[in-house]
Amino acid sequence: MPDEQAWREIAIGGTEINPGSTERVNTGAWRSEMPIIDFSRCTHCMICWVDCPDACFEISDTRLAGIDLDHCKGCGICAAVCPTHCITMVPESSVPVKSSESGA
């Protein structure tokens, strides 16, 4: 674990040298509700993508492909802003999904 490194082993001056490395932090554990996308109604307008605080919407070739549940905190903004109401928030405990899998 990086937080066990001794003083000689870390970057000086507190400079963080691994861009984007907070991705190793599983903020999905914060979640109490999970977004579920009904792709049959999704128009790939990307409003959910642009309004997500946690950059959780996975895009493939300009189309919505899934949700990064390792980082989704379950705020529900996506469900609130979706013009076609194709995203639903459901209680975390009701969906037995491993966090590394897509929420789709």
Binding site: A6, W7, I10, I12, G14, T15, E16, P19
Partner: peptide, 24 residues
């Protein structure tokens, strides 16, 4: 480059960074 300069240290690294300054 993409480094972050001058970030936050919690109680897990601040002490170590200060020890580095002693060495310097």
């Amino acid at each position: 480059g993409g480094a972050t300069f001058g970030g936050l240290d919690a109680n897990d690294f601040y002490f170590e960074h200060k020890r580095q300054q002693v060495e310097a």
